[in-house]
Design a protein around this nucleic acid. Structure first.
Lengths: 251, 251
DNA sequence: AACGATCTGTATGTTATTTCACAGATTAAA
DNA sequence: TTTAATCTGTGAAATAACATACAGATCGTT
């Protein structure tokens, strides 16, 4: 067994494929490196392939008419992106930029399409992927409609906690560094407003910030204020369990 | 050939199925009627089936913590809804309510799943459906982030024009009646603000309202102000073509 | 270790949007 | 056709969020 296959086996979508099929995907795909700040693709480019992030971190964003950046998604290793290419080649609609040095596998759309036709499991997997992402976006839409910036930010922090959270003695540590500007670009607000709101939350002892890392001291309480159903893992009393890693750490 | 099959043949998703398969779907499905204001499903209900709207109109919405209605989608005849049930049975996340007297076909989730496994075309169809809807939501999200209520409303009107527009001598007639409250619940604003904004747009002769029907007198210009790529059909000079129906009319 | 670049904190005036309140219009139902 | 319910228009007061401006902190790179 070729050791290079690990990343395909690691991805939910491909894990059930036979050796042959994996080999075929691999033969037709190519690996590339991108340094921090490099663009993987940009709008108006035609979308003929799908990407699998092997390492690093990618952000997908849109630039508004007034030049503001609207952050659409953060992609972590093992996740696919640019997957709308599977549906047939419209143009890309957003920018994909490496936030860290990243390695990416580029898989031509037709390869996936063929697989889908041959393998019901792949097909179902892609459908699930689309469905889940749609659910996420819809969830996010709801979190923005009618809500104050304060509540949007709270929602965002809890959302990040579910993806990047670590349970520590002080509370839930959000293990990713995002600037206030980036946070603002996710909730559709301004950098200054985010700064002020985070300040308020600190004054209220709901959160704690050290070296640009945010710790939710009262995750449960925050969740309560906006009807967020917090995953049970994050509800554990920190002092009981000590340090408990939820997801892959960052360097 | 059974005349009752028409509605399945009419739906993109099923049109390629064999007689047998259509018959099987039909045998396991059931038709129901809902009067205006009736609920087809509501949150916390478990989602074990998918619905195909045969006639009428359905709105999908969410109720926020403060009791405000956030409108998520309008469903027209021939469209599927509640399709997240295909992915396996989480709970429904929104309300589905008949806006008009409606007939609905209820198809059990497992039936679709079986079809997907047997038929690559169905599987691909479902994937496309999910993908397209996701694209729509994402588009909508972008239209909300960083935009003033005025711009959101403009976007909404153009969006409605693409779905419900008729070209008339005065401009693009939006052939669906929505209250200001409903418009507000789509863009996340208040009823009063929408009233005022529509008033302003009328003063500026951008739109025209008669008996609760909105006509875009300068669709092209409106589109221009918010970088909306208007479908070419709606760009035609109204006086050249007279009345041109884009989509199914309403009574 | 020092530099420049980027990020954060804070204040101040300005604007957009919400909220509340009520009167008049229009629609749907009896 | 009449009545009740819903929808629309408008205004004033309160508030949330934005834009602008600048100083100090922190980071990353050399």
């Amino acid at each position: 067994m070729d050791k290079n296959f690990w990343y395909l086996k690691n991805c939910d979508l491909f894990e059930r494929l036979s050796q042959d099929q994996i080999a075929q995907v691999e033969r037709n795909s190519s690996v590339r490196q991108f340094g921090r700040g490099n663009l993987v693709y940009l709008p108006t480019e035609s979308s003929d392939s799908v990407f699998l992030l092997l390492s690093g971190r990618i952000k997908l964003y849109h630039i508004t008419g007034e030049g503001k950046q609207a952050l659409l998604a953060l992609i972590e290793p093992g996740e696919l992106f640019g997957e709308l290419a599977i549906l047939g080649g419209g143009d890309r609609e957003e920018y994909a930029e490496a936030m860290l040095k990243s390695t990416i596998l580029r898989i031509p759309g037709p390869i996936i399409q063929t697989l889908m036709e041959q393998h019901a499991a792949v097909s179902l997997g892609v459908t699930k992927l689309m469905g889940l992402r749609r659910q996420r976006v819809e969830q996010r839409l709801k979190s923005l409609l009618f809500r104050s910036n304060r509540d949007r930010l709270t929602y965002l922090l809890l959302d990040l906690a579910e993806k990047y959270g670590r349970l520590t003695a002080q509370g839930v540590l959000i293990n990713i560094k995002l600037s206030h500007q980036e946070l603002a670009s996710i909730i559709g607000s301004t950098r200054e407003t985010v700064t002020v709101l985070l300040g308020e939350m600190q004054d209220e002892r709901s959160i704690d910030i050290q070296k640009r890392q945010i710790i939710l001291r009262k995750a449960q309480h925050l969740a309560h204020t906006i009807d967020f159903k917090l995953t049970p893992v994050l509800q554990a009393k920190p002092d009981q369990s000590g340090e408990y890693l939820l997801r892959g750490a960052e360097a």
